[in-house]
Computed example of a mutant assay.
Amino acid sequence: MTNNATTRTEKFVVRFPYGMRNQVAEAANDSHRSMNAEIIARLEHSLDNWPQTLPHTETPVPQGNEETALLERFRQLSRSKQQALLALLD
């Protein structure tokens, strides 16, 4: 890296969940890149495709209406799914 390139970069410390560092290392190795280059490539891809990559099937629930939205969704479930959900909550 040239001195000029070094002055144009920013450092940011990232804490990975357990095991993710190894996944990044494997992906970087498969792509023949450094771990840093792999992370940057994936971030650029994600940001370049934002927000098109977000699911658009559901509208966001406005803050304060979560209970109403949950009740509406619950009522749309089949009886067996309602019972399964209630069992999970017990």
Rank of each mutant, 00 (worst) to 15 (best):
D48G: 09
E44I: 08
V13G: 10
L54T: 10
R75L: 13
G19P: 03
F16K: 06
P55T: 11
L77H: 04
N65G: 07
A87Q: 15
R79C: 06
E10F: 04
L54K: 10
M1Y: 03
P17R: 06
P51G: 05
L71H: 08
Q52L: 10
R75G: 14
M20Y: 13
S78I: 02
E67D: 08
L86N: 05
A28I: 08
P55A: 13
W50Y: 15
L89G: 05
M1Q: 08
K81N: 11
N3P: 04
Q63R: 11
N29G: 06
S80A: 14
D48A: 11
T6N: 11
T2D: 14
R42D: 01
L71Y: 03
S31A: 15
N49P: 03
E66M: 05
Q23C: 02
T9P: 00
Q23T: 14
E66F: 00
L71V: 13
P51D: 09
Q52G: 15
F12A: 11
Q23H: 05
P17Y: 05
E44L: 08
F74K: 07
H32R: 11
T59I: 04
R42V: 09
P62Y: 03
H45S: 15
N65F: 12
D30Q: 13
S80F: 05
T53V: 15
N65S: 12
L86H: 00
Q82I: 12
E26L: 07
R33S: 05
N22G: 12
E58K: 10
D48Y: 05
Q76A: 13
N4T: 14
H32A: 06
E10R: 14
A25M: 10
N22K: 08
N3W: 00
G64A: 06
R75W: 05
M1K: 10
M1D: 07
A5Q: 15
T9C: 10
R75E: 13
Q83M: 10
M20W: 12
Q83A: 15
S78Y: 02
P17G: 05
A37F: 00
H45L: 10
H56F: 04
P17A: 06
A69T: 05
L70P: 02
R75Y: 04
S31F: 01
Q52K: 11
I40F: 00
H56K: 10
G19Q: 03
T68A: 15
L70W: 08
N4Y: 05
N36L: 03
A84E: 15
T68K: 13
L70G: 11
A41K: 10
A87W: 00
N3Q: 14
E26Y: 02
T2G: 13
L88M: 14
W50S: 09
W50Q: 09
T57H: 04
Q23K: 12
E44C: 02
F12M: 11
S34R: 10
E26W: 02
W50V: 09
M20R: 04
L43H: 01
F12L: 15
N3Y: 03
V61D: 05
Q82M: 12
P62S: 01
A41I: 02
E67T: 14
R33V: 05
A69F: 03
P62C: 03
M35W: 00
D90T: 12
N49Y: 00
R15G: 02
N36D: 14
T59M: 08
A5N: 09
P60C: 04
Q83W: 01
L47G: 01
A37C: 03
L77A: 07
G19W: 02
E26Q: 08
E38L: 03
P55K: 06
L47W: 07
E58L: 11
S31Y: 08
A5D: 15
M35K: 14
M20T: 08
